[in-house]
Design a protein around this nucleic acid. Structure first.
Lengths: 341, 341
DNA sequence: GAATTTTCCGGAAAAGTTTCGGACAGAACT
DNA sequence: AGTTCTGTCCGAAACTTTTCCGGAAAATTC
């Protein structure tokens, strides 16, 4: 005959190759205790190199049942929004969503991979700013396709990523402020090592240039995306000899930190200083005053991630390995024309 | 011999009873197309009445692999915290967490139940303020034990629930304010039909009485837990002839609404009015000023829910069908002694 | 050194899934 | 009407994986 079609690897094939019986391999797969360490090692290697995937009971086939959604920790402020989008799309496709958090410890990652294989998840959606290549190759060996959803932008990797248009967002926020008449606009930058920070900063610069303003270094303060660093940056900007009339923070959390710094200085938003954020977290709507910000469509990104990973599971081609969804300026009450002197 | 041990229902037993072969039952279970509607109906009824649970491949046994975590919608502001706690405990127990949202539509619930059976989830944790008894009996039929995590309190049902000490929380918040010297303290109540609202209100009253104050009806404004209602309540309290010097809101979202209402009146927190919330959502820490509030240990409630439902899965007894975890007052910057007139 | 326990693994049985083909009904050509 | 064709529905058999049980070898104890 011709070559056999790509028959799926079975437990017995592995067993034969390892020189043991099928039940032994089964025990290894299920993490049973009564297997000699050496034997277990040998079988695990074979399992991995053959990319064994658990199958229900009978022959191959089987439909998609589970998707893993992984967070670096569960502390991303956009976590809920992403979960909501992923759950929504997964539900529509008839698959379940397993949410996991892997912590900094390497053991946590290992355990997650074991669980992933044990429950025969079909694909993984990673929400993380640092997917190391070790994890990536492990997933490759397991034949579990992965997609990275990353509102922070990610260095290039052979994994499809879904982000958002940071540069355009930075530009529109800045143009909103210049359009209101602001001439001195502070900027609180995010982690410089992440793409998205640079893109937002460049968008800010482009916005100033469009308005015929020059970029002043003292108006750009470094932060690390969190509340605390926003607070410190806000204090520094407020203490400037020539105080800016508006501040654009590269994240909502930093914008709220700026709020607090201004409040302690006795300055009012937006009467004395206008503030713009980036992300549109739920708390942006409920801050006082409600925060003008650049919305990242987290839920849509989650939905797209599900569709993308399912295409990979089905072996279909995807158009582009890197997709960016549009950001959108949401004007609320934290911006106003500058006070007249 | 004696009576047979409670043998699990097998596919073949169902098949025999329905007068069909095992493969046919298998097809029904997996939603295959080639089964006559009448036959499918008959088998599904039997499946349900026997509480059939999918088993891996071999004999009964099998270890716990998946837990379902269900939200009413995914809009609860405490969702992340609960997910975090549940994921943490589930991870430690070696099980995965499937997060689902069921919407108001009944079809959504049905679909979730189908998925639940199809993926052979071992237990369910429901986060909801209205678990209807229909759903409850369905779960009973599927032999999937359930636990309700409900920070809002729930009417009695034959399901273990995990809540928190709302009365004590209301009391401690109020005593904190009276301790600072406040004599006129406004209260923004939550949905009156929920237990927790009454408990918090009673805690407030008890706190006033402890301090020898009388409860004035005009100081208690009805809200529905959300930002908007808090805003309206705040406006009403601020417009009072004799304005309160402090406001205790029965949820953080309402407290933030009060913030905004006060800000629009030109009043400062805490210089002019102190504010206390309830829940300790993440945004409480990041509001301006950071909000003093009563913390509900959402993550711990999630963890306890996992342990409880796993005990039910293993057939163990649980101590109490209703557990309340302690709330804790978190003092931040939104409270201060009343201004001297 | 013998006895006992523990470790490790294979055979057998059980459970569930798919593939393939057969029975049957209705529709469509002569 | 008889024949053929086609599609639906279901069972037998094949196949994969899992657990149960028992036995041989190694390790430990007396």
């Amino acid at each position: 005959m011709a070559d056999t079609p790509p028959r799926a690897v079975t437990i017995s094939a592995i067993a034969a190759e390892a020189g043991v019986s099928a039940p032994t391999v089964s025990r290894v797969l299920n993490g049973r205790a009564d297997v000699a360490p050496a034997t277990r090692e040998r079988i695990e290697t074979l399992l991995r190199s053959h990319g064994y995937r658990r199958r229900g009971g009978g022959q191959p086939g089987g439909r998609i049942g589970l998707l893993d959604l992984v967070f670096n920790d569960l502390d991303s402020p956009w976590a809920v929004e992403i979960i909501r989008g992923v759950e929504d799309a997964a539900h529509a496709e008839g698959t379940g969503t397993v949410v996991s958090a892997i912590h900094r410890r390497a053991s946590s990652t290992r355990q997650w991979l074991d669980n992933l294989r044990s429950r025969a998840s079909d694909g993984a959606i990673l929400v993380t700013t640092d997917l190391d290549s070790a994890l990536h190759s492990e997933l490759e060996e397991l034949h579990v396709p992965a997609v990275v959803v990353d509102p922070a932008g990610v260095p290039d990797l052979a994994v499809p990523t879904i982000g958002s248009t940071n540069w355009a967002g930075g530009l529109s926020a800045t143009e909103h402020l210049t359009g209101l008449g602001h001439r001195r606009i502070g900027f609180v930058a995010g982690r410089p090592e992440l793409w998205c920070s640079r893109a937002r900063l460049d968008g800010y610069r482009a916005g100033l240039e469009t308005a015929g303003l020059t970029v002043s270094d003292e108006l750009v303060v470094q932060g690390v995306f969190d509340y605390e660093s926003g607070f410190r940056a806000g204090r520094r900007l407020a203490a400037l000899a020539e105080r800016p009339t508006a501040v654009f923070a590269a994240s909502d959390q930093m914008a709220l930190g700026v709020y607090e710094a201004l409040r302690r200085e006795g300055l009012r938003v937006p009467a004395d200083v206008s503030v713009v954020g980036f992300d549109d977290l739920p708390e942006a709507r409920w801050s006082s005053p409600p925060l003008t910000t650049v919305r990242q469509p987290m839920a849509d990104m989650g939905r797209l991630a599900v569709r993308t990973v399912l295409r990979l599971v089905r072996g279909e081609q995807i158009e582009s390995p890197r997709v960016e969804l549009a950001t959108e300026l949401v004007v609320r009450d934290s911006t106003a024309p500058p006070a007249q002197h």
